[in-house]
Computed example of a mutant assay.
Amino acid sequence: MHPDEPLRYPSHYPPTGRWKRFFIGVRWIGPDLSFFKTLRSNQASRTSSSMDAWGGGDRQALAAAVGVVLSRHCRWPAPYFLPGDSLLVITGGPSFAAIDDADIEDAIGAMEEIADLKLGTAFWEASGPGTVGALVDHLLTAAGPGSTFKAHSLRAPDLPKKQVTK
């Protein structure tokens, strides 16, 4: 897998067989979960130039802000996501450890804040099986033309917070 390929689960995951589901996470008996390491390393090797795939403008600006949110709340090593990345993979995180529902709720709240929107549960449930690109496009459409995004209030996870002096 190459860093500019979309992040997707392999065809054997999630497991469909009763015993494979039962033994998920059990080495040698359950399904092979080594692909998580590959997903994580491929995403970690992405750079800011990966964001050129978004085509510039508001779409790329919003995608960059959403990327910081997803990286922070879903524990990905870099804030760079591609339009074709599976949202299920991204929200599932880069390992077989469970992501807390509160993390996802916080991510949703942060994305709504960036786009200055309050979207219903139906919007987010419909977005789940799609791609990061589809999510960004839906957020852009919902925000409407001429919207300004609060991306300036976000920082990459590896940068120190600015100290505010009074």
Rank of each mutant, 00 (worst) to 15 (best):
G56D: 02
F22S: 08
A134Y: 02
Q163A: 01
V89E: 10
R155E: 10
R8L: 11
L117V: 11
L88N: 13
L140G: 14
V164Y: 09
L119R: 14
R72Y: 14
R18T: 09
D32C: 01
R40K: 15
D103Y: 02
A78D: 06
G55K: 09
P14G: 10
S34H: 09
G55V: 07
G144H: 07
V68E: 06
S11Y: 08
L33W: 04
A78N: 05
Y80V: 04
T121S: 05
I114F: 02
G30P: 01
A122N: 14
V132H: 01
P83K: 00
L87F: 12
P79W: 11
K161I: 11
A142E: 15
L39Y: 08
S45E: 10
F22L: 13
H152Q: 06
R46S: 11
P14V: 08
W19E: 12
K20F: 10
K150H: 15
R8S: 11
L87S: 04
W28M: 02
A107Q: 05
E105A: 06
R155P: 01
A78L: 02
K20P: 02
H73A: 07
L139G: 00
Y9L: 11
I104Y: 07
F149E: 11
K118V: 13
P6Y: 12
K166H: 10
Q43L: 10
T38D: 15
R46G: 04
P6D: 11
I114M: 04
D116H: 04
L87I: 12
Q163R: 13
F81V: 01
H73I: 00
A110C: 02
P6T: 04
I29H: 06
T121A: 13
R72P: 06
R155L: 04
F23C: 15
Q43E: 12
S127T: 08
F123D: 12
R27Y: 11
A142M: 04
S71H: 03
I114A: 02
A151C: 08
S71F: 03
G67N: 02
L139I: 10
R21T: 07
S127F: 03
P77I: 03
F81A: 03
D116R: 06
E105P: 01
R27G: 07
P94S: 12
A143M: 02
A64K: 00
A102N: 14
D100N: 14
K118Y: 11
W28N: 03
T38L: 14
L88P: 00
